[in-house]
Amino acid sequence: MDPTYPLFPIFAFLGFFLSLVPLSWHLQAWNSGTCFYMIWTALACLNQFVNSVVWAGNALNPAPIWCDISIRITLGASVGIPAASLCINRRLYQIARVHAVTITHAEKRRAILIDSLICVLFPVIFIALQYIVQGHRFDIFEDIGCYPSIFNTPVSFVINSMWPIVLGLISAVYCVLSLRAFMHRRSQFNQFLTSNASLTVSRYFRLMALAMTEIACTTPLAIFAIYLNANAQTMQPYGSWENVHFNFSRVEQVPAVLWRMNHLFVISVEMSRWVAPLCAFIFFGFFGFAEEARRHYAMAFWAVLKRVGFRPRVTVHALPG
């Protein structure tokens, strides 16, 4: 039995809840990078929650269609969250080097379009390319659930493993440039924030702290994951398309007693599934205690309790605007 059960499903569901509740507030503020961060984190947490509950204590295959969807959410989130962090850093840099006090609606729409290409189109292309190194349909690990089957070959490094590192390094460059631009243009920066109702100084620095924390975690964890994958399983040459995709439709169902025998593989699997709740709680740590966030969480909390017959003793008001 999973030693983290039921702790992990609880944390995964809380991560889903904490990530998704403030979404409407950030949508109104046109914070597209932050919204994509919340959406990818919430999807990853929900995906892990379902898997950890359905496959607790078993390695059966009752929902193959779900697993086809689940592994693609797992793959998409692995680059979607770092991509969203990149977009946050990119926006912070643009604000720090601002040349005009106001931003037009056309500029906002263009920024959202670029963020959408980075956070949606790029993960979709990434997911599609994984078929090149996908050995078979999917794996099911007892206590873990659906898991992508990536053929351990040098080609998978280029197609699968290196992109979180690339995104993290680009984010780091934007972060350094943001700090540099902020130090050179502090007075104009303060003037811009004063005229911008959707972004206060406090919110700007919380976004900066979130992005810096994400950078500090993404690149080292991605490098460590490559090390684990390279050593937990034997590295094999790609060979040919037919070799990699032989009997592609098969599903490997692995009981916990077998996959837990490989210590490095256990670390790799557990790390990959705990990353999503960790991202959610990091987000909550930076934004969950702000006044507007507390109000949104309170509204969501009482909305859930009302479904089961409870009523709040005090009235929870919605945010203006």
Rank of each mutant, 00 (worst) to 15 (best):
P277M: 05
R203N: 02
R311L: 12
A222E: 09
L210M: 09
N58T: 12
V254I: 09
S24V: 05
S85G: 14
F138I: 13
A280G: 11
P64N: 06
A293P: 00
H184K: 15
C119L: 06
Q233S: 12
S249E: 11
P237D: 02
Q94W: 04
Y227I: 14
G15S: 07
E252T: 05
R110N: 05
S195P: 10
F289Y: 10
L179C: 12
F205G: 01
V269L: 04
C119V: 02
M261G: 05
T153L: 14
W25K: 09
L199K: 08
D139E: 10
R294N: 02
F13L: 15
R110I: 00
P154I: 01
I282T: 13
L305F: 14
P148F: 01
S70Y: 11
S149R: 00
I170Y: 02
P62K: 15
V124S: 14
A96L: 14
F138T: 14
Q191H: 12
A232F: 01
R206C: 00
Q28Y: 07
R91Y: 05
F192K: 15
N61Q: 07
Q48Y: 00
L228T: 14
R180S: 07
A209G: 01
C175D: 08
R273H: 01
H136A: 05
S268I: 00
F8W: 11
N229C: 08
S195E: 02
V98F: 05
T74F: 13
M235E: 07
P237W: 00
K108A: 04
E292F: 03
G135T: 02
N243M: 13
R90Y: 01
H99R: 15
L27P: 02
V53G: 08
V50M: 15
L278T: 09
N58E: 09
T234M: 12
R273Q: 09
F224P: 13
V50K: 15
S272V: 03
S156F: 08
V304H: 07
F205D: 02
F224A: 08
S116G: 10
F265P: 02
P154K: 07
P64A: 03
A300F: 06
L258V: 00
H105D: 07
F205E: 03
H263I: 08
E270L: 11
W40G: 03
A216N: 00
C279G: 08
F246G: 09
